[in-house]
Design a protein around this nucleic acid. Sequence first.
DNA 1: TATTGTTATACTCTATAACTATA
DNA 2: TATAGTTATAGAGTATAACAATA
Lengths: 149, 149
Amino acid sequence: MSYANDMPTTTATSELASELRVSMMRLARRLRSERLDEGLTPTQLAVLGTLDRHGAMTLGELAAHEKVQPPSMTRTTAALEERGLVTRVSQSMDRRQVFIGISRDGLTLLREDRKRRDAWLAGRFEQLTSDERALLHAVAPLLDRLAQA
Amino acid sequence: MSYANDMPTTTATSELASELRVSMMRLARRLRSERLDEGLTPTQLAVLGTLDRHGAMTLGELAAHEKVQPPSMTRTTAALEERGLVTRVSQSMDRRQVFIGISRDGLTLLREDRKRRDAWLAGRFEQLTSDERALLHAVAPLLDRLAQA
DNA sequence: TATTGTTATACTCTATAACTATA
DNA sequence: TATAGTTATAGAGTATAACAATA
């Protein structure tokens, strides 16, 4: 089965962009709604994810990464620390800096959340044929390439 | 070329769910960052999109659709009306109800925003082969089916 | 003197409660 | 009496400005 011939190459890429954008954003929104509601704000959740993916970093780096101002990150990390989801690690020579790292509880929470959303999505896969699932499998790395830089 | 055989059917659907979720959310986030910054809040932008897709509706319906309380929607629509992006249409028998509709300027703003993001995505397509683009074309309706209900 | 993070304070967005107008 | 929407007020999150500690 070939997908290449389902669509003439002359089809405007902007139309493809539009249809992919709409479908993808719709599913992304639906997937977001499946998030565990642990009373965490989007920023707090994003911080946990960042710390998980990139490891401990200073408060300033974290603020830059999440595109918020340092005072906001002070509050955000304070709230996370109060719930035991992050820890302050003083591993720097520069004693002005504050290193923030994800805690075991934070990791657990993240994994539960991901597991839950994966389970929801996997459940939705049941209505697909194995060919269609294979198609999704092939598309994931393409999405990554599109997202890069 | 067959995608169906690229992956044994025994592959855990949860793994596929995870890889698709991560890739898709990443691209969705990237796409969101390409939005025009017109100083609109996410809710305001969502309201414009809803009014465009579903037409004019009462303030209460709009609040329910966006999952906010009526007083919040009063503020949101007031802000949009002040900028001329929505209009109040009194087309109801029941004079308590307030119908909100998108204005010409609101439509223009929405279209500019979509055009901009489509252009960004279409630009990214240039690094793909036509086979790969065809793959994305085939996948869009699958994403829609996954998002349904 | 410059830099990292915190505290003080204000603004925005949303919520609940009380109110007005209409049914 | 019930309903649609608004106004009053409070809470949460983020911003800027001023400050403290360290380099």
